[in-house]
Design a protein around this nucleic acid. Structure first.
Lengths: 233, 233
DNA sequence: CCTAGTTTATGCCTTGTAGGCGAAAACTCG
DNA sequence: CGAGTTTTCGCCTACAAGGCATAAACTAGG
């Protein structure tokens, strides 16, 4: 390994943390964006975040920065997504960015500052830097994890009916999800359970829907997911 | 968002890139480690890597640095793993590290410098910094991806018999993998195909084994993997 | 040349998950 | 009470994963 002191100061670079904060809003998967007031990319939309502080960890930093945008307690899930360090990604000089994926349950309407807004993740406004690509990474990650983890807990409110939940899944996945099948899959996996209560059905009557909740509200990987699993004893 | 200029210089930090380079060696999953000659962690083992250069991207940088350890052409796969930025992770000052996962096919024996060595991934020597934890992340990632991608191509040689391949999977997964089932799974998924040739079986005779190859030698996600998939047309 | 031993390949079967579909249940409204 | 609506349940199919026994194809020894 070469002597690291030889190029010590050349490897110093600004580092920022960003977050792709997603929420289902009016049946659409939406992302929280911030409108830049200054060049570069003035008046373009970018991901919330900012410079990494001197003595804070990466996750710590993005939580602090997000607290200026949404109440941190609104985030049901936060995980590291990817780090980008292309030399040309920031016009004003070398800047690395570590992006996180954050999820806000659908029942919450966080107070957000005037310079931020929710945008449909499938119809992004003009965005600065490489942030549009990062949003796509976040969507991909969410879609994949809906398949083999219990990450739905971070999209849904604490209690929900199966038809509500299927609409959340539809918005996040981009295609129809049959409530019948969703119920069976999640029940068999032990991800959800009935609360025992039920709510009268929507606008025009119908059978009252049972209420469900996620049994665990932090990320778990579906054990039966792995193929080529160890021979069972 | 706060004025980033207010703390511009405080967010400058050293950034390094590291690699968890894995290979199946003598039936064991092994990781390439470098023995430090200087404090901190003198004589401990650490991951290969080093400071990020001024004008290079992250992936570019780790490829360059690995070229000093293993021939870059030996790497069949390289992907970003995670970024660590804990303030206390480096005793000499703030250092962020972006780790990559690299895989070397089992038939290659790369020329490596004298200060590096392969170690069993399940029996690591005393390691510096947080690098042991990063190795564990790499193992987890590999194990998971063996389940739902064709990443086996990066562990196996270009051609192999099913019993060879099942030994590679066993070493990487840490449990027995029946050659019969592996064959069916990978064939059905279209990941592997017969070459048409066969080799006489090993030491004490037996039916000659058919040779297989991976159809695609770059990462692909198994399409049928997703649950809650779109309704088929 | 034949047989025993070894290894690989094939076929049959069981299990379990995903998912479609229709009937039944449980409500609202007129 | 009956029509319309929504949810729930049960039945069925499709298919992947995986266990196991047997067949196939070779080597080596007598």
């Amino acid at each position: 390994m070469q002597d690291s002191r030889a190029e010590t100061h050349t490897s110093m670079a600004a580092h920022e943390v960003l977050a792709v904060v997603l929420q289902i809003r009016q049946e659409r998967l939406s992302v929280l964006l911030w409108r830049r007031a200054r060049p570069p990319f003035e008046k373009c939309w970018v991901l919330p975040g900012g410079r990494l502080g001197t003595a804070e960890g990466l996750g710590e930093s993005i939580r602090r920065q997000l607290a200026q945008k949404v109440d941190v307690r609104d985030l049901a899930h936060l995980e590291q997504l990817e780090t980008r360090g292309d030399p040309g990604r920031h016009p004003h000089g070398r800047t690395l960015a570590t992006a996180y994926l954050g999820l806000v349950p659908a029942d919450i309407d966080p107070v957000i500052p005037g310079d931020t807004a929710w945008h449909p993740a499938s119809d992004l406004p003009p965005m600065g830097f490489d942030h549009a690509a990062i949003v796509h990474s976040g969507r991909r990650r969410l879609r994949a994890k809906l398949s083999y983890t219990n990450i739905g807990f971070a999209l849904a409110p604490p209690e929900f009916t199966m038809s509500e939940l299927s609409r959340y899944y539809r918005a996040a996945l981009g295609h129809d999800v049959a409530a019948t099948n969703l119920r069976r899959v999640l029940l068999r996996r032990g991800q959800i359970e009935e609360t025992g209560e039920s709510v009268p059905s929507g606008r025009s009557g119908g059978r009252p829907a049972a209420l469900f909740r996620f049994r665990v509200r932090r990320l778990e990987i579906t054990d039966a997911f792995a193929v080529l699993r160890p021979p069972q004893v």
